[in-house]
């Protein structure tokens, strides 16, 4: 019998290394479950979960919803468009109104950093952070680390490069915390304009050259170029970014060892990664998606008991 050290999943920062291993071990069994002819188990049949998405999402929302349904939970879906938010309702009021309908858990994505933590202090429900602004995206980091563990057997001592828009990426921050707690080394790589100041203070290596990162790493996690931020002029053009930081088969083959390629999606084909690489045997992008359901089932299962 084992339990997480926390009542909510707000960020990887709050988890202990033991928590992460417990989630991985539980997810191993759920991965077996979702590959059965009948993929559903009744564990959470008396639990109701509300998915509150105040920001757009396809993959994470579908993945959480599927995980909840595979666990037999009752699911409520809420998205910001078409809701009373436009009438001026506050986050706490929205959450409390949903909880008044006897909801046990809330999965929330919100554009503001710290929104999940804010809510967890003010409402009586288990909160799972599905991405809060540029802060954290814990389940993505867990599924990334789980996918590396699955491909390479173990995380300890492995070298993982996270490449791209580090500054705006919640995936990057959660990845750093999660990989370090699982025993891996992390390098952040990207243009200087998209690298946070004092990134080294996280205990990671920093590089501004993709070739250098590829020479160093066992795994490269290629983050999405957030085109919506292009108007602020972080780099001159998409074409220039693709030339400097886009992963091509030529750059991949130039590295002295085989590198596992990951991407949290959605992919801008031809920008941060070429189709040739994304669809190659080096890539575990679709394994990440499959593992996402297993990881989210594990997190929900472990937190539903609290």
């Amino acid at each position: 019998m084992s339990q997480l050290s926390t009542d909510h999943l707000l960020g990887i920062k709050d988890l202990t290394p033991e928590d992460i291993q417990l989630i991985f071990k539980t997810a191993d069994q759920f991965k077996e479950v979702i590959n059965r002819p009948i993929k559903k188990v009744p564990s959470l049949r008396d639990i109701t979960i509300a998915n509150l998405f105040f920001e757009n999402s396809t993959r994470t929302k579908l993945s959480f919803e599927l995980a909840e349904k595979r666990l037999s939970a009752d699911v409520l879906n809420f998205s910001a468009s078409g809701s009373s938010l436009s009438k001026g309702e506050t986050l706490i009021d929205t959450a409390n109104n949903i909880l008044a309908m006897k909801v046990d858990m809330i999965v929330m994505r919100h554009p503001n950093p710290g929104a999940a933590e804010f809510l967890s202090r003010r409402v009586k429900a288990t909160i799972i952070n599905a991405g809060d602004g540029t802060h954290e995206h814990p389940t993505q980091a867990l599924l990334d680390a789980f996918s590396i563990r699955e491909r390479l057997g173990d995380l300890s001592g492995k070298k993982v490069a996270v490449v791209g828009d580090i500054l705006h990426s919640r995936v990057a921050l959660s990845n750093v915390f999660c990989l370090q707690k699982a025993g891996a080394e992390v390098m952040l790589c990207g243009p200087r304009t998209l690298m946070p100041l004092h990134a080294e203070s996280l205990g990671v290596k920093v590089s501004y050259r993709l070739e250098e990162a590829l020479e160093w790493c066992d795994v490269a996690n290629m983050l999405r170029v957030q085109k919506e931020r292009m108007d602020k002029g972080y780099f001159p053009s998409i074409r220039e970014y693709a030339m400097q930081y886009g992963l091509t088969m030529k750059k991949l083959k130039a590295a002295s060892r085989d590198i596992v390629i990951m991407h949290p999606g959605p992919i801008n084909r031809g920008v941060e990664i070429t189709s040739e690489v994304a669809d190659s045997d080096y890539s575990i992008i679709l394994n990440q998606v499959e593992n996402g359901v297993a990881i989210r089932m594990a997190v929900l299962y472990l937190l539903a008991n609290t």
Partner: peptide
């Protein structure tokens, strides 16, 4: 066959039970 996820005492214990491996390679 591991039956952890099918138990009827989920949430009636202090902590969730740790599942074991299910290994059935046939229908």
């Amino acid at each position: 066959l591991d039956i952890t996820f099918f138990r009827d005492d989920f949430r009636r214990r202090d902590a969730p039970l740790q599942p074991n491996q299910t290994k059935i390679d046939f229908l």
